[in-house]
Every structure is written in structure tokens, then in C-alpha cells.
Design a protein around this nucleic acid. Structure first.
Lengths: 133, 133
DNA sequence: GAAGAACATGCATGATAGCGCATGTGAGCT
DNA sequence: AGCTCACATGCGCTATCATGCATGTTCTTC
């Protein structure tokens, strides 16, 4: 995988949105990203795979969940590329809307676990009604 | 043109090579870039056009020559992206070979003009024999 | 104004990428 | 064991892109 291909991995709005969220949290579960971006699960999975192949992110399996995070030990130029993404953040409301949804979704975690007792994606959105009481 | 499209403009090895050269000189003529990259003229022209559309470079017409340079007044994230390109430079011999050819080609300028009295591309390379004597 | 140099562009082609749908995989729960 | 949930992936389709060839455009020079 040469340099152009690695940059190619960033040349997609969905992947930029994913990276934007991942740069702002230690790690995020796939289902949380699905909710935050309001995209089909298969789309999110695919884009995450591309980013992982390009070496920008890595994953951690935890039971039936998979948490993604920014890869550790990034080479300088990759780190710079990610920095460009974070600068992009101030320029488009798309990223801010993502962050808001992600923030609400992440706040529903219990003891760091993403989906405990959550009926995910009720009617296309996550219910802020307090989960299963 | 959204952000992903702008990054898309960088997702090509030829364009990375062009940018690498342009970040290291005030301005470079198309024919000089053709020699430095050893690529067909139409290819270089096309890629320059893509970079220009994406806002990374701008051109200056001078007679029958066209000089390209890094665009002035770049937004922060674009400047950061270009910085990533320059960091890429230390990682691949391709860029260094380009620079060497470009350096030799640029040294043939007379009073800042690119092709004065030059029979360009003799046998696929520029002749270091001193131009027209 | 005719010729040539420098650069740009229209067209056809092959390769690649993203999307939508469905299905596969693997872990946890009953 | 069987089921469900979270996630990944194979397939078909469409769109986009880089390339190669040829041609067009613009400027200079004779």
C-alpha cells in the first residue's frame, strides 16, 4: 500500500466523519458510530475496514462488540494527515452534528460498555429515554 | 467541491510528486515538470488541472509557458495537508529522484525563464550539454 | 499569415470504489 | 442446541478516475 492509497483512504466524507469522531474519544464501538453517523451498519463496517487497512485505526474485540480507536505509533505524515482532519472539523456543520449525536450516545454507556441493556436504533435513532429502566 | 474531494485530489502518486516539487520551488513550468517526472505532457497537464481545481495550486501564464505554484492564502487544513506531503518526502526515493531531475532542469533557466533556447527532451531527457551554444 | 512550440482537452477504455441488499460469522444468552 | 445480537463480507450495479491517443488552442517567431 503506497502513499497515494493511504491518502485515498481519507478521500471519503464518511471516513472523514468517522475519523473525526475517533480523534475525539479513546475508542468507540461500531454500533455507536452507526448511530452517530446515521448510516447503515454495513457501510460503517466497510469504511472502518478501509481505514484500518490504511493503518489509521485499530480495533479491539470485546465480546460481541468491536471498539475502534486511532492507531498507536503513527508515522509523522499520517499524524499530520489526521491533524488536517481535526482542522476540517471547524469548517463543516456535518462534523459537529456527528459529535453531538455521538456525545449523547456515548453518555449512555454503563461502566465503559457500549450497549448494555440498550435497544439500539429505535426508529432509526437511539432513545434518550434512559435505556431499559 | 467538498472536503473529501479535495483530499481525493491528493490521492494520486503523480500529483503527490508534483506537489512535492512545487513546495520546494517558487514556481515551475509545465515543461520542467514533464522532464522532472518523466511523464507524458498530457498527463502532467491533467494532474495539474486537478490540483488547481482543488485549490492547492495556481498558475501564471507567461507567453507560451505556464508556471505553476502552490496557491497563496491556503486555508489551515489545506496547508496541513501539504505539510503531510512534505513529510512524505523523506520516506520514498521517488520524490528524491524527482527533486534531483528537477534541480538539474531548473538550473538550465536563463534569467528565470524556463525554456529559452532549449531543445527540450532530447532522447527523453534534457541535455546537460549547455543548451544551445 | 503560416509554421512551430507549449500547453490543454475530447474521447474511448480499463480499473477501481462506493452503495444496497443479502448473507455469513462469531460471541453471548436461555 | 438454538436463538439473537453485533459485526463483517460476498455480489451486482453504477459512477468515477487514470491512462493513452489524438486533436485543439494559444502564443511566438519568421
Amino acid at each position: 500500500m503506497d502513499y497515494a492509497e493511504q491518502i485515498q483512504a481519507l478521500a471519503d466524507l464518511t471516513r472523514l466523519r468517522l475519523l473525526n469522531l475517533l480523534t475525539q474519544a479513546k475508542e468507540i464501538c461500531v454500533c455507536e458510530l452507526v448511530d452517530a453517523l446515521a448510516l447503515p451498519q454495513y457501510a460503517v463496517s466497510r469504511h472502518l475496514h478501509v481505514l484500518e487497512q490504511a493503518g489509521f485505526i485499530e480495533d479491539r474485540k470485546a465480546g460481541r462488540w468491536v471498539y475502534y480507536r486511532i492507531a498507536s505509533g503513527l508515522k509523522p505524515y499520517r499524524r499530520t494527515l489526521l491533524r488536517a482532519v481535526t482542522e476540517l472539523r471547524d469548517e463543516s456543520p456535518v462534523f459537529q452534528a456527528d459529535e453531538e449525536r455521538a456525545s449523547r450516545r456515548l453518555s449512555l454507556r454503563r461502566e465503559g460498555v457500549c450497549c448494555v441493556g440498550l435497544v439500539s436504533r429505535i426508529g432509526g435513532a437511539f432513545a434518550p429515554t434512559g435505556g431499559k429502566s
